[in-house]
């Protein structure tokens, strides 16, 4: 008499579990180097807090080179997940990818990241499309199941950028740069206005975007301190 369980059922379940493990192992290996590269990029970029804007170019060039290594890792990640459902595994790399996107955004804001089709200028916000071009991967895919940068990841990285700029505003004053806090203030307020029109649900994006207003206030306080002491440079005046 036939058995209750056709052995093929569990054989194929096991095969699927093993295949899944294989993909996960590949992803984890790549993420290990991506994490290491990420730390190195962050440490280069944090020089911005102690270097006057005028002397930042070497750091930006170094950051761009270091980011290029991250781009290679992202390429490997994209290759390793060909044929695997994107949303089955994206939780594994979301944090690391957000770090890479943040590094690109911050470096871009500082005036780095120029390449063909992307003009480098200080105070610039790189769009998700430009980030995708730099990373050489698609963005916001809807019809095709492949590796890409999601809107959520981009927005998360923007929030990190705002936090970093709040810190930079303080440190700019310490460096004697009274102009930059004003630019930061304006830039962050514009981003804040953007975030306010999003209908966020009770998810991680919502929780983190709640922190934007504190950073806006922190930056406003700096601008207030400067203007109170007549330290705000006249618009159009010498930098």
């Amino acid at each position: 008499m036939a058995n209750m369980v056709d052995p093929k059922i569990f054989e194929s379940l096991q095969a699927k579990i093993d295949e899944d493990q294989h993909v996960r192992d590949d992803i984890r290996t790549i993420l290990q180097s991506l994490e290491r590269q990420g730390r190195s990029v962050q440490s280069i970029l944090s020089r911005a807090h102690s270097t006057p804007a005028a002397h930042l170019q070497p750091a930006l060039d170094a950051a761009k080179e270091a980011i290029a290594e991250e781009v290679t890792s992202i390429g490997k990640l994209s290759e390793a997940t060909v044929g695997s459902p994107y949303y089955k595994y994206n939780g594994l790399w979301m944090r690391d990818v957000q770090n890479v996107v943040f590094a690109i955004l911050f470096c871009g804001w500082l005036g780095g990241m120029g390449e063909e089709g992307i003009v480098a200028e200080p105070g610039k916000l790189l769009t998700i499309e430009e980030v995708g071009q730099i990373l050489n991967v698609p963005v916001n895919l809807k019809d095709q199941d492949a590796f890409h940068i999601t809107i959520e990841e981009y927005l998360q990285s923007l929030i990190t950028l705002i936090e970093e700029l709040a810190r930079l505003a303080i440190n700019s004053v310490t460096l004697g740069d009274y102009q930059r806090p004003l630019h930061i203030s304006h830039f962050v307020k514009d981003l804040h206005a953007g975030f306010q029109i999003l209908n966020l649900k009770n998810d991680s994006l919502r929780r983190r975007s709640d922190s934007i207003k504190y950073n806006v206030k922190k930056i406003e306080d700096i601008v207030y301190d400067l203007s109170l002491r007549n330290l705000v440079p006249k618009a159009g005046g010498a930098l």
Binding site: L125, D190, L191, A193, G194, L198, N199, L200
Partner: peptide, 16 residues
């Protein structure tokens, strides 16, 4: 006072 990023965020809002 319009933020120059508004069109971008409007796209994001629709997607979200």
């Amino acid at each position: 006072d319009a933020s120059p990023f508004m069109p971008m965020f409007e796209t994001f809002r629709d997607e979200l």
